[in-house]
């Protein structure tokens, strides 16, 4: 019996059309990203200098550097991580390794996911109410770090949980079968395997925290503060907020535009470096974890 004729040409044409359109769309995404980057680099590159990075702002922030903002962002990231990492990682271990009750587990998950969905400005408001006013920390690094920490907590929990989930159960069973307790198995088998992925998640959340503006708006960020903080109860400037200030409500918006682009470039570079660091570290640890 003869096979019915297939419309070969038609089929190939469809393939080509589909393939080409997917390709073009993905190029478009890259193009957009490239355009944004190009604009910022093009406009910001000229102001970047050693002085720009290490000097105080001058002349109503139209001249000088952004040093206090860089330092401020650094402190805020550090503070929020000190708060969010241990709590986040430990809760993720608890959720993934210890909770058996599926209802309870689902409830916690729902809550952490909802937390992740709350707009960051709401965190800012909450931080102001709780840390700044109720607990009396005032506008300070402490209040800002805690607020940023809260914001990033669900991300840390989620990524750690995913990292733990990706550890095959056969490793856990192997541990138990050798007479290891649950804690020993988690500490000596599960965590070392999950470690590279956990670290990557954490570093990516650093990138996110360093760019947040809304949560620090009411809790720590100073409009203009040409000196470095001396303690955790001091206010600081921060890169994203500084960028917002000089491009919207500075003393001379038009004149400080180059500085705004310079600030944006620094911010983007930081996020980019953090991402590259995350990838390198994961690859390095991925190898190392198999070795030790």
């Amino acid at each position: 019996m003869d096979w019915p004729k297939k419309s070969e040409r038609n089929k190939n044409l469809k393939q080509i059309i589909a393939f080409t359109s997917f390709k073009l769309l993905s190029y478009a995404v890259v193009m957009i990203l490239f355009l944004i980057l190009a604009q910022i680099v093009f406009k910001g590159f000229s102001v970047i200098s050693w002085e720009f990075l290490t000097a105080m702002p001058e002349d109503g922030m139209t001249k000088g550097g952004i040093f206090p903002a860089i330092v401020g962002t650094f402190y805020l990231v550090l503070g929020s991580m000190i708060f969010a990492f241990p709590i986040g990682v430990l809760s993720a271990i608890y959720i993934n390794e210890y909770t058996k009750d599926s209802f309870y587990k689902r409830f916690i998950k729902l809550m952490t996911n909802s937390l992740a969905g709350i707009p960051s400005i709401v965190f800012g408001l909450f931080g102001m109410t709780l840390f700044v006013n109720t607990l009396g920390f005032g506008d300070s690094i402490l209040a800002g770090s805690l607020t940023l920490g809260l914001l990033t907590l669900p991300v840390v929990i989620r990524t750690t949980e995913e990292a733990l989930k990706s550890v095959d159960d056969s490793f856990r069973h192997g541990g138990y079968a050798l007479g290891a307790t649950k804690l020993q198995t988690i500490r000596r088998v599960v965590l070392p395997i999950a470690f590279p992925n956990i670290i990557t998640g954490l570093i990516l959340s650093i990138g996110r925290v360093s760019g947040e503006t809304a949560p620090i708006l009411f809790t720590v960020a100073a409009y203009f503060l040409p000196k470095l903080p001396s303690g955790i109860f001091d206010q600081v400037m921060a890169l994203p907020y500084h960028l917002y200030v000089i491009s919207t409500s500075g003393t001379n918006v038009a004149e400080s535009q180059p500085i705004a682009y310079g600030t944006a470039l620094v911010l983007i570079m930081i996020v980019l470096l953090v991402n590259i660091a995350a990838n390198t570290l994961r690859r390095y640890l991925g190898k190392k974890v198999k070795m030790n």
Binding site: D168, S170, F171, H173, G174, G175, A177, L178, G179, A180, T181, Q184, R188, V189, P192, I193, V289, K290, M291, N292
Partner: peptide, 25 residues
């Protein structure tokens, strides 16, 4: 003791894999 269907050595050295059971005990 137990041996599983899929070989499941830990992500450690050969030595540490065998030593693991002793150490946790």
């Amino acid at each position: 003791g137990m041996v599983f269907q899929k070989p499941n050595p830990f992500p450690k050295t050969i030595f540490e894999n065998v030593a693991y059971g002793l150490r946790v005990n």
